[in-house]
């Protein structure tokens, strides 16, 4: 059996969780064993409708009187106790911030290794796996020998594959035994962002500007284009370091890793550290004065030209309905 942590928004599983299930299902199928999903929070039961179509056999909503909201250690402890009951071959978590954090705790609790950011896993007594390093600019082939095997999936790398005739997963609540210590770290409160518009991580269109933008005011046409396309603005590390944009806008190795339908890279050269942040994009359009810039080799489409002329022209053309 494989035990997978599934995250959700009010009963709708997150994209990263569905990506993870592709991996979980593959491992379970090799051993002809079921996939069990551990699901936390309000709406956990409701995930059963969707999760069946992604190969989950049983949903175990984790409920506890003192567990209200995210508490990393308590989530990990619940997984450990569930694993104790189910004796899974592997415990998996999505490649999200929470998934990585919870799995690190599971690894510490069980004193077992964790293979983070996995791309492929060949089942067996020991797993032969590949995982991302350097944000995905290197692939590590590794061997994991552990009982159970603990893994997280690389984000935006695995295809989401619904199964035919999956049906609805069964639902059976699980109540862990939690101590005060397990709940010492928890979200005390949530401060809503006063930023308007689409969050970077969810935008279908990201119009991103790098050093070539030249200054904070240079982002105005990028904002205009993003607005017209229902998207949002991103930035390279170079631009953030210059203080032109807040760090929350940064795309790359130490910023956001995003997966929009299109990434419009304006005045961005395309260094590895940047590209690992946007390689999840379904397509890339590069606007750059340098026809030999590295980004030109990574993009699907390119415009050779000055972004300060090209972007306003595109904005104008959209407004005119050309």
């Amino acid at each position: 059996m494989t035990l997978a942590l599934v995250e959700h928004d009010d009963g709708t599983p997150t994209e990263l969780s569905l990506e993870l299930l592709s991996l979980a299902r593959q491992l379970a199928a090799a051993a002809d064993e079921p996939v069990v999903a551990a699901v936390f929070g309000e709406g956990a039961e409701a995930t059963a409708a969707t999760l069946g179509d992604h190969g989950v056999d049983a949903v175990r909503p984790v409920t506890h009187a003192n567990l209200d909201g995210y508490a990393p250690r308590a989530w990990a402890e619940s997984l450990v106790q569930l694993a104790d009951e189910l004796s899974p071959e592997a415990v998996l978590a999505p490649g999200s911030d929470r998934g990585q954090e919870v799995m690190a705790h599971v690894g510490a609790s069980l004193d077992r290794p964790v293979a983070a950011n996995c791309l492929t896993v060949a089942p067996g007594a020991a797993y032969e796996l590949t995982r991302q390093r350097w944000g995905g600019s290197l692939v590590e082939h590794a061997r994991l020998e552990s009982d159970p095997k603990l893994l997280t999936a690389a984000a935006h790398e695995l295809a989401i594959e619904p199964v035919d005739g999956g049906g609805e997963a069964t639902v059976e609540p699980f109540e862990p035994t939690l101590e005060a210590d397990h709940l010492a770290v928890r979200v005390a409160r949530f401060e809503e962002s006063d930023e308007e518009g689409v969050p970077l991580g969810e935008a279908r269109v990201v119009v991103s500007g790098g050093r070539g933008v030249g200054g904070p005011e240079g982002y105005e046409p990028l904002e205009a284009l993003a607005d017209l396309l229902g998207g949002t603005v991103g930035a390279s590390r170079a631009a953030v370091n210059e203080g032109w944009r807040p760090h929350a806008d940064q795309v790359g190795l130490t910023g956001a890793k995003i997966s929009p339908d299109i990434y419009i890279a304006c005045g961005i050269s395309g260094a590895i550290q940047h590209m690992v942040g946007c390689k999840g994009a379904k397509s890339i359009l590069a606007i750059n004065t340098d026809p030999d810039a590295a980004i030109m080799g990574k993009a699907d489409w390119a415009v050779v030209g000055d972004l300060h002329e090209v972007v306003p022209a595109v904005v104008e053309a959209i407004r005119n309905g050309d």
């Binding site: 290197l138 590590e140 082939h141 061997r143 020998e145 552990s146």
Partner: peptide, 9 residues
Amino acid sequence: GAFELVRLE
């Protein structure tokens, strides 16, 4: 348990 690097690529 063990996690061992086989090779990089």
